[in-house]
Design a protein around this nucleic acid. Sequence first.
RNA 1: GUGGGAAUAGUUCAGUUGGCAGAGCACCGGAUUGUGGUUCCGGGGGUCGAGGGUUCAAAUCCCUCUUCCCACC
Length: 377
Amino acid sequence: MDLKFQVEHRCPETHARAGRYFATHGMVETPIFMPVGTVGSVKAVDPRDLEEAGAQIILGNTYHLGIRPGIDTLIALGGMHGMADWHHPILTDSGGFQVMSLAKIRKIDERGVQFRNHINGALLDLTPEHSIEIQEAIGSDICMVLDHLAPSTAPRAVHEAAMQRTTRWALRCLAAHKREDQALFGIIQGGIDHELRRWHVDELCQHPFDGFGIGGLSVGESIPEMYAALEVTAPRMPEDRPRYLMGVGTPNDLVEGVARGVDMFDCVMPTRNARKGGLFVDGGRRHVNIRNACYRDMRDPVDSTCDCYTCRHFSAGYLRHLLIAKELLAYRLLSIHNLRVYLRLMETIRAELRAGTFAKFLEDWRRATGSNSALNA
RNA sequence: GUGGGAAUAGUUCAGUUGGCAGAGCACCGGAUUGUGGUUCCGGGGGUCGAGGGUUCAAAUCCCUCUUCCCACC
């Protein structure tokens, strides 16, 4: 277990580090961004697109895959690797996020979470044990514990209770988890309360998890609040385990997250925004809307400096036309672009860390983006 | 040719006994952070077919004309 993760480079001026995580289906370079494939596909793109964009590991979701196609079908089709023809690592979220995002259709108690699912209203009884069972059927390289996630606006008492329940559920997941070829990550909660965050790190990280998620961020709090909470959480976590900032974020969040010691990120933003026309350009420093009329007759690519398949072959004007006409190709081409921007940003960050120039990169990034997020630590 | 119906935003249409010109879609802009592709917020838009009449006041009532649709000859 201890050999699964190796830190190889550290940035002395920040908490940033570069390393390798050895999963069952291959090695992952960190810091890494993981495209989100909730229901068994990264929306609009296929495994070849993902490989060409530089993806090394993708996400699946326990709640969604547990409902459809369900455990029996997942097993029959060879798990997510088999059915999706993706032969690199996969991480599965436990369904914890749906505790919050689908709050209207669930009941929660100490046993677990009962969802009336959004497809046909059937009951999904998601206990920590059942979440592990589904994740075993999916066959992910990395499983997440079922956690209790509260909105950032909730009072401290709610966060404290959710945090303590998350610990109890994490230990039940640890006990239920059997497969040697699957890693299991715990999840740190505590909202944006620094004391709760420190408390939960110290409590949960005593247990033999293979890595730790930082949950409960980017759920309504301000950006400075999120960075501040991250700053008291990530550097306090075990040096020899990967730190995964769940559900985050913008390109700026990735840069600032790495600076605070994060190794792994996932976010729907590159793919979801792409389907609405929101594109990241200039290496992620700017965000534009391809639907804007100024792109109507543009023959140049969206970003002439971008090396993605879309920018190498298609004009901004054509992409705008496809999106406005709701042509299915638009979703694929725009998703490919945004994924490549995210994955290339992480390649750049890793290269800067290996070269020992990350601090300079961070300074330049902050100047170029005008972001005002200097480390407090 | 005769009879009937219609004409209001880019488009499809509402518009009450005459009382500040409206909606959906489209268009334009914004939001989107462990994904319910269907979402949300904001904005620009009009000689109410044309001309005349009645009235304090007309998209609305009256007359004439134009265009289109339907039925019949």
